[in-house]
Design a binder for these strands. Sequence first.
RNA 1: UCCUCGGUAGCUCAGUCGGUAGAGCAAUUGACUGUUAAUCAAUGGGUCACUGGUUCGAGUCCAGUCCGAGGAGCCA
Length: 467
Amino acid sequence: MSKTYTIAEVLNQKVPVDSEVVLKGWVRTRRDSKAGFSFIALHDGSCFSPIQVVAPNTLANYENEILKLTAGCSIVVHGKVVASPGQGQSVEIQANSIEVLGFVDDPETYPISPKHHTLEYLREHAHLRIRTNTIGAVMRVRSCLGQAIHRFFHEQGFYWIHTPIITTSDCEGAGEMFRVSTLDLQNLPRKENGQINFAEDFFGKETFLTVSGQLNAESYCLAMSKVYTFGPTFRSENSNTSRHLAEFWMIEPEIAFANLLDDAKLAEDLLRYCFKAVLEERADDMAFFAQRVDKDCITRLENILQHNFEHMDYTDAIKHLQNANKKFDYPVEWGLDLQSEHERYLAEELVGKPVILMNYPKDIKAFYMRLNDDGKTVAAMDVLAPGIGEIIGGSQREERLEILDQRMTECHLNPADYQWYRDLRRYGSVPHAGFGLGFERLVSYVTGVSNVRDVIPFPRTPKHAQY
RNA sequence: UCCUCGGUAGCUCAGUCGGUAGAGCAAUUGACUGUUAAUCAAUGGGUCACUGGUUCGAGUCCAGUCCGAGGAGCCA
């Protein structure tokens, strides 16, 4: 009785030559030889490469089935692992029998023909695009990165916190929110003044999908010291760019007894750990990206592993930009937020590697960021990556209640809406810090696949929620 | 949402000055071959995004609509 293996196991020589094996997968290509056999490139997603199956014309179903195999057909192969006499692979499978599980209805209109397709085209066939080299490789790297992130935090003594998806707070402040409701849209309950009566809604008040787990993570941080979230996040902004999704995944660590420098070090350590893991575990997929997508993607990661991230104060960044021998479309002045072109100049031209910008003016940052002693800046940091821009945004949190209240008022927020968040500052408050890492932006940066819609399985963007 | 560019065969694209719709790949058939993005030959394949307009005549010019991409803003 032969055992079923993955193609990765066979190609990585975990199975000795002459072993009898069963392989299951999908046909990539078929080439017929009049010497009395066909070559089938079989793929099962376990690694980048397909394996070559040699199907002799003595198979019972050779004429009526094997010769009709086209890209996308699913088969089960029973055969022997043999050294390959041909170029291009060390081993191949000499088939004893091949069972066809599913043919492709109409090969001419099968969307994934064995040729080049644009990423835009593949996006419109999101349920089948995983069968291509590019998207398959992206998803293996994505999985590798996700596992690496959990492993990194686990090794560092962090606890993974599952913060809620549904939130009653519309004050998270990070963007437009999707409403969650069970009210009948055709027949909304009204109060006497004509406003919608959310008391009759499922939760008895207005609810939304989360735009950030940070506030909840802070609560757990102030009991468990080192925590992180890793989950879906939703923003209903009408953003149409290669860097934005309405549904995306975000990693948000939160550390107690920590300041901004601890936060920056954590961000750098995490990214470095992830890059190392991908280079070690997905060398096959990365080699493909380097060949077909972005020739610098491997050397870029290798260089980062050898050098520290550049640290730069916002104030110094403004000086650098003002002294730059370059015309910017938007003005550079202390107190103004940096535009994409500015961030790009700093990361790509001035420094040429990731930059951690710190200590921004308080007026352009969120209320929860800790006020510095100068009274003008807050302990915020952004990690800017060449080619993609902001990949991480974080800060030391304001742990002093009076100052937090004052900052909320300045930001036109009502402290009464944040009672539980304020409680954290009333009962054993400690300095703490955290950041948000956009998972899709990380995958995009690592692979060189420049649109985040191509690095998430089923992208949600304005007007797009098919599949 | 704003700006720019685009939509022609299953896919990637060309299409000149407004005058009979083209190529490569894919598919089908055949030849050849331990092949590997195989090679060679033949064949089939079109609502030129949609609607309207100008014109003897529109893939081509004009208007509107829909869809896509890139950039910007928002941010991760």
